[in-house]
């Protein structure tokens, strides 16, 4: 469909007002909102993700594309909720206690939303207790923790331990990432998944949700 292609292309360029206009137009044309989401917004964000990973575009360009994606998503969301359309999965995400760096966490959030996940963002400096409460309240498929600093990444382990003591560890897939984190650290603390960048995080999240659901 030409208009969906147009949505995708404008999203990639970061033209938020144009994406808003086109999404409205597509709805007026009686296109299925889920199709607008999948073939317009998600398709566009996927291409942004691939270009980002290939170093064809950088963080500023991704932030602008994500802004355009949210412009479209804000129109579609209420309609999708009404029609009972389901998300790929639900993710609770946050930067761990003691760490207030959020560029990486926000990129993962954007890419996840751009791939059809519902994301609940707990923000920065999130304590293990807060993560545990969020798992209890939102019952997510995935809990994602980010840390830029090596000193704060130790708090990821504390969160996993806190989930265990509340008997919640088996109820949620735990993913970790951030500049300080490595795959071997993820294994060591008993996380289910690690990703070195936001695009890999989405791929890994999809695999994990499929395997654990």
């Amino acid at each position: 469909m030409a208009i969906l292609q147009e949505i995708s292309e404008n999203l990639q360029k970061g033209y938020a007002p144009k994406v808003t206009e086109l999404v409205k137009q597509a709805l007026n044309n009686k296109l299925d909102p889920l199709q607008i989401l999948n073939d317009g917004l998600i398709n566009g964000m996927n291409i942004v993700g691939v270009k980002f990973r290939n170093n064809e575009i950088y963080v500023p360009e991704v932030l602008i594309a994500a802004r355009a994606m949210y412009a479209g998503l804000n129109i579609l969301r209420p309609i999708l909720t009404q029609t009972g359309a389901t998300y790929v999965g639900r993710v609770v995400i946050g930067t761990v206690k003691g760490d207030i760096h959020d560029i990486g966490k926000n990129l993962v959030k954007m890419m996840m939303e751009g791939a059809g996940f519902e994301v609940i963002d707990l923000g920065v400096d999130v304590s293990p207790e807060k993560f545990v409460d969020a798992v209890k309240n939102y019952k997510p498929d995935i809990l994602g923790m980010s840390a830029l600093l090596t000193t704060t990444m130790l708090n990821m382990k504390d969160t996993i331990e806190a989930l265990k003591s509340e008997n919640l560890r088996d109820k949620v897939v735990v993913m970790v990432g951030g500049a300080a984190v490595t795959e071997s650290y993820a294994v060591e603390i008993g996380a289910n998944g690690y990703a070195r960048d936001s695009v890999s995080a989405v791929e890994r999240a999809k695999e994990l949700v499929l395997n654990y659901k």
Binding site: G14, V59, P60, E61, L63, I64, R67, D102, I103, N106
Partner: peptide
């Protein structure tokens, strides 16, 4: 703040 990155283009 981090918006500076986006504003490099906007």
């Amino acid at each position: 703040g981090t918006d500076l990155l986006m504003n490099m283009l906007l």
